[in-house]
Structure formats: C-alpha cells, structure tokens
C-alpha cells in the first residue's frame, strides 16, 4: 500500500491563559494514496486541529508526521509552506477566496508561489482546473459575483491547480445549501474516482458516510476507523 500520510503518536496541546488543553492525543493514522477519508466527530473533538496538522498549517506538540515518505515534523515555517504549496490542496468551509482577485487569479495564486512553472504551464493548469469544476466560463468574475456553490468550485479548482498529493477539505459543504452541497460532494467523488486522495473533515453524517473510510474522533482521540468502501459499493 502507498501511504501518503503517516501520523505516529501525535499530540497537540494548546496553552490558553496558562491552561494547557490537550486537543489531540496519541494519534496514530495512515492515509494511503487514492483514499477518500472522512474525519468526523462532535464539536471540539479535534477534527479541525487534526486537519490543520495534516495540512502543515500548525505544528505538532509531539510525535512524528511523515508525508510522502518524508518526515515533516520539524520543518521551518517556510519549508512547510513550500510543501503545502506542492503537496497539499486546501478546500475551506468559507471558501477563502481573495476578494480582490478574479476567478482566474485566485486559481493561479498557489502557482505564483512556485518557481518551477512557466507562464504557459501555469495558464494550462489554471484552465484545466477550472474546466474540471466547470467554471472556465467565469474566469473573469470576482468572488462577490458568484454563488456560494460556485465559489466553492473555484476553491476546489485552486486546490487542484498545484496537482497536490492530497486534498484536505474542512467542512466543504458547511456554508452551502443542500443543492450546492450535493454538487460539491459529487465533484469530490468525481475527483476521487479520477485518483485523487482526499481527506475531509465534516460533521455531516451523510457526507462522512459517503467517503471510502471514516475516522471518528472524540476528545482528541481516534475512536473509530471504518473502511466504508465495501458499504459504498
């Protein structure tokens, strides 16, 4: 099996007003290439913290994090940024598009932080990504001119543009109505079918169950890890 992510004995503690809070405790987790993992659990169980660690948006307090065979537990800020840029695609609940940039520029943004792509390659990648989410015709629009569903599709295109090893989605349907939510979930499933590795945090049971594997957290610990691919089939 080709593992993309390996978490070994990961702890994460927060210090607030001199009170130490253990957000994640002894997390052992492996995510393999091509998996669609959903992480679920009640509010405050640590699922978003876990996703932040997976996305190198935050550092672990203890343990080892291996990404694509490389230990990324003790990297500098800038080294983590470079890995995020190449290996990880983010999809946020609130889309997090930049309001001053148009659709094309938003999708282009992560590619502008790389030095290994020519202008033509960037253009091809952006157009391909937008075509994948069916937003190519809106590339001159600004986020404020789009619906929530459309904004999330642009955000997915942005996540895909860098051809990451894994897509990390944090409540991707949380800000959407049911119709748009379904559309986004369909898109993620299509991407998964095309070979993408996806890790999604959600508290929506329906969404969680539609993944190929479901991990449940409670009080910062993994309490359930279920392979759903057979059920889904």
């Amino acid at each position: 099996m080709n593992s993309i992510i390996e978490l070994k004995n990961i702890d994460k503690t927060f210090l607030t007003d001199e009170v130490e809070t253990l957000a994640l405790s002894s997390i052992e987790l492996t995510i393999n290439k091509g998996e669609f993992v959903s992480i679920t659990g009640p509010s405050g169980c640590g699922k978003s913290t876990l996703l932040s660690l997976l996305g190198l948006l935050d550092t672990t307090s203890q343990g080892q994090f291996v990404l694509n065979g490389n230990d990324v537990s003790n990297l500098t800020k800038n080294e983590r940024a470079k890995i995020r840029n190449k290996e990880i695609g983010f999809i946020f609940q609130s889309f997090n598009l930049i309001s001053d940039l148009d659709v094309y520029e938003n999708v282009e943004l992560p590619l502008t932080y790389r030095n290994d792509l020519t202008a033509d390659e960037i253009k091809t990648r952006v157009n391909d990504s937008l075509a994948k989410v069916d937003m190519g015709h809106r590339n001159k629009h600004f986020p404020s001119q789009l619906s929530g569903g459309q904004q999330q599709r642009v955000a997915i295109a942005r996540a895909l543009a860098g051809s990451p090893s894994i897509l990390l989605a944090d409540e991707p349907t949380g800000n959407l109505d049911s119709k748009n939510a379904q559309m986004v979930m369909d898109l993620l499933h299509d991407l998964h079918k095309e070979g993408a590795t996806i890790c999604m945090v959600t508290h929506d049971q329906h969404c969680a169950d539609s993944a190929s594997r479901r991990i449940s957290l409670f009080d910062g610990r993994v309490v359930e890890d279920t392979n759903l691919s057979n059920q889904a089939a």
């Binding site: 996305g55 948006l57 800020k77 800038n78 940024a81 470079k82 995020r84 840029n85 190449k86 983010f90 946020f92 997090n96 930049i98 943004l109 992560p110 932080y113 790389r114 942005r158 860098g162």
Partner: peptide
C-alpha cells in the same frame, strides 16, 4: 490576517 492565512495555506512563504 485571514487573507494572509489563505495565501500561506496555499504555499506563500513569508517573503511572498
């Protein structure tokens, strides 16, 4: 701050 958070999540380093 949030915007910079997004940019950094997408791979921007401090210099960017």
């Amino acid at each position: 701050t949030q915007e910079f958070g997004v940019r950094r999540a997408l791979g921007a380093i401090d210099r960017d």
